[in-house]
Design a binder for these strands. Structure first.
Lengths: 226, 226
DNA sequence: TCTTAACCGGACGGCACCGTCCGTTTGGAC
DNA sequence: GTCCAAACGGACGGTGCCGTCCGGTTAAGA
């Protein structure tokens, strides 16, 4: 009932602790992107150049680490959305938003997908950030539609669908930037109001490859035990 | 060097063994779709109603089991391709192919994606089936383009890209058929030569949800340790 | 400089899954 | 009906990751 009198405000970390925390987050993002979200904690610790205990002291559970690592991406996406809203040309703002987020996904490879897969209920945590994002997105979509650039039957959830799909693609083909860009171009074209067939980026090199159709995957390397 | 003289031809299984083998494959597809490709072997065995030893006798390694389970899907996709080629209307054939494969992916949830992720080198095994599929697909694409239905700059690899992306989507939202259908509709429209904006299926219910943008995932449930 | 408390990392027990071994049961041929 | 080989399933040792405990080290204030 009675708390320690002082110390209510400051969970300030010592200089070295703060530095290590940062290193761990960077390492976690890299390792999770590379070896999947189930990668051993020890691997993250080693990559960060710290001991396992340090990692567990900073992030008591694996979930805490994953969530913290992912929070940075959420933040980045939020910024992208704000920037998109600031663009005077509504369509260009929308287009840039999609391209920016997809580029981020490309960099982070499969990590976002794995995160969403593992934490379906993570909405609550980012509640207010999410609410704001939702409002901003709605505004962006409406403006683009009012300008006659975005098709009228576009629904905000379509953006989530497109991003999830793209996320899945980069998870499957983490080294195929061409495939990613090609998909983004197709999607953006199909979102346009007047369907102008602009030029597409060059196609992916995969032959018919990485397909859940004839079973190939060309570049993939994530072991996942295999 | 010297093989057993007889027994070259017949690895015939006893009736009960054959029956159990079938059960195991069914159970494996279900379990892998539900709990991911790393699900414990014991779970598969239990679901199939057999002992662990039986499972290992039939499929010595986990890989062997996964590959065997996936082979059936490859076969189904091959049939879909053949049917598509048989359709007198090239575009309708193409459209049906995409829809059929995506529906299959929806049923199998994330299994194909996980397979491709885990076995990037699986192309070799299905070499001849794949070669044939590639030839067939090329024919299908050329015919549809010649008919002026499919855009001229469509590349066969675009199909693989689209399917991988869709696969990723159903992995992330295994229970959201609306999202899947919506994506397929968008993609098909963007593949059309003359960009006719037809009606889209109703949008997904996810609010802005399962997005690697504001971090939610609504329906997802696959644990993956979480 | 010195003290102290916070931080560090390696080592250790616990647990879950893997894959095999062996005694028992069952299909099917004579 | 009888017999045997093949198939069955439960139990068991091995391995790798998880998460905590403890003695040494270092930042930072007096």
């Amino acid at each position: 009932m009675v708390e320690e009198s002082s110390r209510i405000a400051g969970p300030e970390l010592r200089a070295d602790a703060r530095r290590n925390r940062g290193r761990i987050l960077v390492a976690a993002r890299e390792v999770f992107a590379e070896h999947g979200i189930d990668a051993p904690m020890a691997t993250v610790a080693r990559r960060a150049g710290v001991g396992v205990a340090t990692l567990y002291r900073r992030f008591p559970t694996r979930d805490a680490l994953v969530r913290a690592a992912f929070a940075q991406q959420v933040e980045t996406c939020g910024r992208a959305l704000t920037e998109a809203l600031a663009d005077p040309d509504p369509w260009r703002g929308f287009q840039r938003l999609v391209e920016t987020v997809c580029e981020l996904q490309r960099e982070e490879q499969g990590f976002p997908a794995a995160f969403v897969a593992a934490f379906p209920d993570s909405a609550a945590e980012h509640a207010q950030a999410r609410e704001r994002a939702e409002r901003d997105l709605m505004t962006l979509v409406r403006r683009a539609q009012a300008a006659g650039a975005l098709r009228a039957d576009f629904h905000p959830s379509d953006l989530a669908v497109a991003l999830l799909a793209h996320c899945g693609l980069v998870t499957a083909l983490p080294h195929d930037g061409a495939a990613s860009r090609r998909l983004v171009a197709y999607l953006l074209q199909s979102f346009r109001a007047e369907a102008a067939h602009g030029a597409l980026p060059p196609p992916s090199a995969l032959s018919l490859g990485g397909l859940p159709l004839a079973a190939d995957g060309s570049q993939r390397q994530r072991p996942s035990r295999a």
